[in-house]
Amino acid sequence: MAETRKNDVLLEVKDLKVHFQMNEGLLKAVDGVDLTVREGRTLGIVGESGCGKSVTNQALIGIVPHPGVVTGQILLHKKRGVALEKPIDIVKLPRNGKEIRSIRGGDIGMIFQEPMKAFSPVHTIANQLCEGIMLHVEPNKKKAWDIALHALEQVGVNNPRQRMNEYPHQLSGGMRQRAMIAMALSCNPAILIADEPTTALDVTMQAQVLKLMNDLKREFNSAVIFITHDLGVIAEMSDDVAVMYLGRVVEYTDVDTLFHNPKHPYTIALLQSIPSVTRKAKSELEVIEGTVPYPMNMKPGCGFYSRCKKRVDGLCNVQDVPLVDIGNGHKVRCMLDEARRP
C-alpha cells in the first residue's frame, strides 16, 4: 500500500433538497446541501439533531421515505472502481430499481447508529453478512461465507468462526458494531457512510472503533462520510468537514481550517461551547441560546437568524443566503462581511 493514493472525486452532491409535503405545511428537511466526496478522504458532517443529516444520508442511497421529494443532483462518478463516462445521477434513478440496488451496499455502504436495532434478531451474523456479499461480490454461498469470515477477522472480532453462527443478541455492544462495520466493508464499497457509529458506545469502545475505521480506510482507500454531532470525533477522523444547520450546509472546509479559522457564526458558537480543559474553573459554559426551529413553513432568510449573536436585521432575514466559496475551497453561507473575508 505504498503507492500514492489518488483522490478522485467519487460523489458529488449539488444543491440537494428533500421536501416533505405534510398536512400542516411544507417540511424542508434538507434545503441545500453541497458536498464532494473523494477517494481516501473522510468527510465529516456535523450538526445538531434535526439539522437534516440523516435525511441527507437517506437521499444518498435513495431510501428517503414517502412523501419526501428529492431535488438536486447526486452524481456518482465511479462504479465498482471503474470510472464512468457519464456520472449516474442517483436522484433520477427509479426507486428500488436494479441500478440503485446495486449501488446500495456495492458502491455506497452504510454503518448505522444502533447495531442492536440494525441487525435482524432472528438471523445469524453469517446470514446477514453473506446477504450483502452474495448480492454484490460473490454469489457462491460457500465463498461468500469465507469472505464474511475474513471480514470479521479484519475488524477484530474475536472467535470469528463462532460468531458467524451466533445471533446479534449474543454479541456484546462493541462486537456488534464491529460486525456492522464488517458487514458494510465486506462488499468493498468505494464510499462508506457512517451514521453516528459510536454514539451508542462507551469511550474505550469508541476509540477502538474509530481506530479500526481509520485503518480500514487507509487499507482500502475508501471514501468515508462520517456523520456525528461530536466535534472531537470530527477533529480526529475527518479530512473535510461540512457543518449543517436546518437542512443546509452552512460551512464547508478542511478540518484544520474549520477548527482554526471558522467563519460562520454557528460554527464559531459550536466551537466555543466545547468545554475546554484549560478554561477557568467554575466559569459559565458557553451556550447557543434558543433551540433549532422546526423546518416547516420557514420565512426566507438565514436559518440561524433567530439564534445568531451577530445578526443584522434587514440583511440576514431578507433572502435565502447562498453558499459562497471564499477561497481555497472554504465555503460559507453567511451575509456578514467578516464571515466572507478569507
Partner: peptide
C-alpha cells in the same frame, strides 16, 4: 431499523419483505 439496513445493503424489496 433492520429493514432499513437491509434496504441499504441493496436487498430487493420483495426479498426484503419476506425475509
Amino acid at each position: 431499523q433492520y429493514v432499513t439496513t437491509a434496504r441499504a445493503k441493496g436487498v430487493g424489496e420483495k426479498r426484503l419483505l419476506f425475509k
